[in-house]
């Protein structure tokens, strides 16, 4: 017996309203690719002379930034490393705090307190970074320096990260990291809270019924189940921390000609975004190109981090794959 010919199905919208809606949604969806592409493209064009003048590897990893020399030297190595270091330490400080906050709001707090806490944490995310920078400079820096000194005195002798021979504990990567941590805690905790709220309550009940404690259920069931999502939030925050400009500019001593690999408490560090802010106002034309090139490097690194983030989020949750 023969099979009837296939009939045309309505895979595409037929109604005018649907057509318009589809077109708008499609345009909005594709525009994100186009916009990112265009930004990168035009930034690169403006920065191109800087890349022509010197090897990109030397630019990215070499040391020194000085427009008074002849020829001028523009290298962002210490800034690039500083961005990564400060962002990483900031994340290390912020993650346990953010997860604890999210756990409290989602699983422990009575409803009214949970709601209030949610609003307050989200408000923290809304503080303009220049305000946080001023807070960091005017209020936190002396306190942070005091903490740093205690840390250094107590542990600096045997933990190289915490040694400091410069005599001052101000304007260090340590202080910048804490300011960055304050900025990204709300970001990570609101992502984590969202992920926690999606964890199947039946699984949690099952774990408690097996004799799980609050702590072991969090560690063995809730966190593994939400790891991918939380990691996504953390990397999102890492991207934010890498790009942070003003707040770090206020509290960190930028040192261009020397890497500060790991002396967290010493008053020398770097951050690409803060470099751009610090130099842009009085830059020579040649220097502007180099600053734009630094922007390109920062942009590309942030893109890479985000790409890794979405890859990990997918890989880490095989059971969510459809």
């Amino acid at each position: 017996m023969s099979v009837p010919t296939q009939r045309k199905l309505l895979a595409k919208p037929a109604r005018t309203a649907d057509k318009i809606f589809f077109a708008v949604a499609k345009a909005a969806g594709y525009s994100s690719f186009v916009i990112i592409g265009l930004i990168l493209f035009f930034l690169s064009i403006r920065a191109w002379p800087a890349f022509e003048r010197q090897n990109i590897l030397e630019f990215a990893f070499g040391t020194g930034w000085d427009n008074t020399l002849d020829p001028a030297v523009f290298n962002i190595g210490p800034m690039l490393w500083g961005s990564l270091l400060i962002a990483a330490i900031g994340v290390v400080i912020a993650v346990p705090m953010a997860i604890s906050i999210a756990y409290f709001i989602e699983f422990l707090a009575p409803k009214p307190i949970a709601k209030t806490a949610t609003v307050i944490v989200d408000l923290l995310a809304a503080i303009p970074s220049v305000v946080l920078g001023l807070w960091g400079l005017g209020v936190f820096t002396p306190v942070g320096a005091h903490w740093a000194q205690m840390l250094g005195d107590a542990l600096g002798g045997f933990i190289p990260f915490l040694s400091n021979d410069t005599g001052t504990y101000l304007r260090s990567p340590f202080i910048a990291s804490i300011v960055v941590a304050v900025m990204i805690v709300p970001l990570i905790s609101s992502v984590t809270r969202e992920i926690f709220s999606q964890v199947d309550k039946e699984i949690i009940k099952g774990a408690l019924a097996l004799g799980g404690t609050r702590e072991s259920v969090l560690r063995r069931v809730i966190l593994p189940t939400s790891a991918g999502g939380i990691l996504g939030g953390v990397l999102l925050a890492l991207g934010r921390a890498m790009g942070e400009t003003v707040a770090i500019f206020f509290v960190l001593n930028l040192v261009f000609d020397e890497y500060n690999w790991f002396n967290l408490l010493e008053p020398q560090g770097g951050a690409i975004a803060s470099l751009i802010l610090a130099r842009f106002g009085e830059a020579t034309p040649e220097e502007v190109e180099a600053l734009l090139a630094a922007g390109v490097v920062l942009f590309v690194i942030t893109l890479i981090i985000n790409a890794i983030a979405s890859y990990i989020v997918q890989k880490a949750q095989p059971w969510r794959r459809d």
């Binding site: 019924a209 004799g211 593994p224 189940t225």
Partner: peptide, 23 residues
């Protein structure tokens, strides 16, 4: 429970001994 609720991140074996780990 009413709805089967194995731990999605664990293997069959890990699920069986999950109670030991949890407690």
């Amino acid at each position: 429970f009413q709805k089967p609720n194995p731990f999605p991140t664990m293997s069959i074996k890990e699920n069986v001994i999950s109670g030991l780990k949890l407690s």
